[in-house]
């Protein structure tokens, strides 16, 4: 209902003008469509809401009443997941691996992208093409060779194996985004910085990098999500529980706590929370990033 009002109020914005022109005929249809849109929004959100609400209920409440209404909210599920089931350890590992991987791939991609975008040298186009080919590589094909490479480096069951893989895997995308941003910057900035006595390194660090900060934000957000959510690589590379990430920890947890439904919901929330926070902080960047290159 509020939505219908909203639409009419905002109609001068333009998009709803045709609907307004023939309001009489379209009203019934508009109500039906608005209802459908809200229903589907509920289908999207209610499962996630149920997950959050059930994590504050007890096992007994969930078993006796299927509706996720927390009449008597409790934090005990979080205590049992976080402390007893070592989610604190898993979360720490996930944070360590995700943050270092994103930091390393961004840190090495920035100078490479700058050189590819701003300098002329032999083999530049071929090199850029090689980096871009990494965007097309199907991960499945690389898993076994990567596993044996890490085995050879004695890095199986070490977070370092995942950090290396994710860092390398992030380079094509990061270089791709950063090159296009560096190319858009006007050359006068560099010239002025050189006249002020800068060298290649100081100009890059003090002048150019700060200018591509929005692109760095895009790269960080869009590498963070898939690394945080990845499950197959940790499943293959990690062996001991102390090194588990949240994903692998969650599978163990679902085996061991399968009769403690309430704690399972808390485990799911802990695994998802950092992403929800990121989504709330960076909604605009995420939506814009996902639709980059299409219209608008």
């Amino acid at each position: 209902m509020t939505l219908t009002l909203d639409t009419v109020e905002r109609a001068p914005g333009g998009a709803t003008a045709p609907a307004r022109r023939r309001r009489g005929r379209w009203n019934a249809q508009a109500v039906v469509i608005t209802t459908v849109l809200w229903l589907y929004a509920a289908v999207c959100v209610l499962p996630l809401l149920t997950m959050i609400l059930n994590s504050f209920r007890t096992h007994l409440q969930i078993a006796t009443d299927p509706w996720p209404i927390p009449t008597d909210p409790t934090l005990e599920n979080y205590v049992s997941a976080w402390a007893d089931a070592s989610f604190s350890r898993y979360a720490l590992n996930s944070i360590l691996i995700t943050v270092s991987s994103v930091a390393i791939s961004t840190a090495v991609s920035l100078p490479a992208a700058y050189a590819l975008a701003r300098w002329r040298f032999r083999g530049r186009d071929a090199l850029e093409g090689l980096f871009m080919s990494g965007l097309l590589i199907p991960f499945m094909l690389a898993i076994l060779p990567m596993f044996y490479l890490m085995d050879w480096l004695r890095l199986i069951d070490s977070p370092l194996s995942l950090i290396l893989i994710y860092s390398a895997n992030g380079i094509p995308f990061s270089v791709f985004v950063l090159v296009s941003f560096f190319r858009q910057l006007p050359g006068e900035l560099e010239e002025a910085a050189f006249l002020d006595g800068g060298n290649h390194f100081t100009v890059f660090l003090r002048v150019m990098v700060p200018l591509v900060r929005p692109a760095v934000a895009t790269v960080v957000v869009f590498r963070f999500v898939p690394i945080w959510n990845d499950f197959l690589m940790p499943l293959v590379m990690l062996r001991s529980r102390d090194n588990y990430t949240l994903g692998v920890g969650l599978t163990t947890f679902f085996g061991e706590y399968q009769n403690d439904w309430a704690s399972l919901f808390a485990g799911l929330v802990i695994t998802t929370l950092p992403l929800l926070v990121l989504f709330i902080l960076a909604t605009r960047q995420i939506i814009q990033g996902l639709t980059a290159g299409i219209g608008k």
Binding site: Y40, A41, C44, V45, P47, L48, V225, W228, N229, F231, G247, L250, T251, L268, T271, T272, L275, F279, I286, I287, L290
Partner: peptide
Amino acid sequence: LYTTPYLVSPLV
């Protein structure tokens, strides 16, 4: 709202 599930891990 429609994009939220897309960002949650497939495992979750």
